[in-house]
Design a protein around this nucleic acid. Structure first.
Length: 421
RNA sequence: GUGGAUGUAGCUCAGUUGGUUAGAGCGUCAGGUUGUGGCCCUGAAGGCCGUGGGUUCGACCCCCAUCAUUCACCCCA
């Protein structure tokens, strides 16, 4: 038979990666709760219009990376390429926008984008995201950044830098944009082909170009942070003061521009050095116009997305070992049908008491059972054969020391439980 | 979507200028006297040499295509 392989850009996650995965999810849930965020689950697919409006009709994500399909009734749907739009839709649809503000939600979801896979980027990826709505103050920006920072620090990641920037609001951005285009036109001859095009369509992205010549132009380009209106400037300064006061290190990076259309004012990225070209481990920012854009009330928002697989790459690089599966307390090695049944009885009782216990399921010889017990790192091995069964006894071996003691059968579980306290 | 690299056993990799039955280490399984793990020893299983074409008397090796992985770009988590 021909083999079937998994779809391109997807992955099977199992030990040992799955331990890192669960470790991260545990820290995420724990930390989000401490910050007062509650979890939200939304559908894997939505009407395609939600993403077109929410993420932005002109973005690459919407234009060429969406997994879309037509349902039997003719409706166009798409697998979610990100989480924010769905959360906003859900908050509006369920009337949560009338709750006490601010609204604080988090999620751990899989997202889909049709891209060329490489390290740190796949077509199905899982991200931890958080969203806060109804809080215009820079303290909200700080709280969101602080949540991301706490998660990264709890995981134990070392080589991560926070980059922040402000890209202004609908008041000051057009003015800045005009100035930038003017500058770029004057330096047009130094730009690469794509940048020459982008200069007109989305000039901010030129600042992000990796081309050497473009980089030089970007170096001296007018910066958003020098052209902020009073309100945006104050907002950004306040945020920096909060970060300073609470000891969160950052660099102001005028080249952080973010590709999703909905961002306003604060944008930020946490960047892990050395995990490849996909080094942004967490990216986010403010989106004060998004709620309204999706048919809700005027309500400011801010949030981030954090890529779980990129975190795992960073963990590996830092040599962080996640906790592994619990080792069995007892392995029951048995010989003969009757002894096997008695062994299973003991194992069942221990499991009821919440203790990890195992016994032979594949008919191995005693010697092979001992090897197996050693392999799975069982702390104790109980040996039952016909003679023991007759005498109502069994011998218990402590694997680390090799010591062996005789116990009556009905004392076994009690003994193991007492050892396990 | 663009460009480069790679593809041999479950894993990590050897494989001589194209020449008969494709190898190692680790892992798996079974043994090393009668019912006891780790170390050591022995043996076994396990490969359409990614897939499909082509060149050749003959291809793991050369050529083309394709798929997958990977690096960089684009974009982004």
């Amino acid at each position: 038979m021909e083999k079937i392989i998994k779809p391109r850009g997807t992955m099977d996650v199992m030990a040992p990666d799955v331990f890192a995965w669960n470790y991260i999810e545990g820290i995420v849930r724990e930390t989000a709760e401490v910050f007062g965020f509650t979890e939200i689950k939304t559908p894997t697919f939505e009407e395609i219009g939600l993403f077109k409006r929410g993420v932005g009709e002109t973005t690459d994500v919407v234009q060429k990376e969406m997994y879309s399909f037509t349902d039997k009734d003719g409706t166009m749907y798409a697998l979610r390429p990100e989480g924010t739009a769905s959360v906003v839709r859900a908050l509006i649809e369920n009337g949560k926008i009338s709750d006490t503000l601010p609204l604080k939600y988090f999620y751990i979801i899989n997202c889909f984008r049709y891209e060329k896979p490489e390290a740190g980027r796949s077509r199905e990826f899982v991200q931890f995201g958080s969203e806060m709505f109804g809080a215009p103050s820079s303290l909200a920006d700080f709280t969101i950044i602080s949540l991301a920072d706490s998660v990264l620090k709890k995981i134990g990641l070392k080589n991560i830098k926070l980059h922040i920037n402000s890209i202004g609001c609908p008041k000051c951005r057009p003015i800045y944009r005009e100035e930038l285009v003017k500058y770029l036109r004057a330096n047009e001859s130094y730009l690469c082909d794509t940048c020459r095009e982008r200069m007109e369509t989305n000039p901010l992205r030129v600042l992000d170009c990796k081309n050497d010549s473009c980089k030089k132009v970007a170096q001296n380009a007018p910066k958003t942070i020098d052209h902020l209106c009073e309100e945006c400037k104050e907002h950004f300064e306040d945020l920096k003061s909060s970060l300073d006061a609470c000891g969160i290190d950052y660099v102001v990076d005028p080249h952080i521009v973010r590709g999703l259309d909905y961002y306003t004012k604060t944008v930020f990225e946490f960047i892990a050095e050395g995990i490849g070209s996909q080094s942004t481990v967490c990216g986010g920012g403010r989106y004060d116009g998004l709620m309204e854009e999706l048919g809700g009330p005027k309500m400011p928002g801010i949030g981030f997305g954090m890529g779980i697989t990129r975190l795992i790459l960073a963990m590996k690089q830092d040599g962080i070992e996640p906790p592994v599966l619990a080792v069995p307390e007892l392995y029951v090695a048995s010989m003969g049908k009757n002894a096997g049944r008695k062994g299973l009885e003991i194992v069942s009782e221990l499991r009821k008491a919440g203790i990890n216990a195992e016994t032979d399921l594949v008919g191995r010889s005693l010697k092979a059972q001992m090897k197996y017990a050693d392999k799975i790192s069982a702390k104790y091995v109980l040996i039952i054969g016909d003679s023991e069964l007759e005498a109502n006894k069994a011998s218990l071996k402590e694997m680390a020391t090799g010591e062996q003691t005789e116990l009556t059968l009905d004392k076994i579980t009690e003994y193991i439980i007492s050892k396990n306290i």
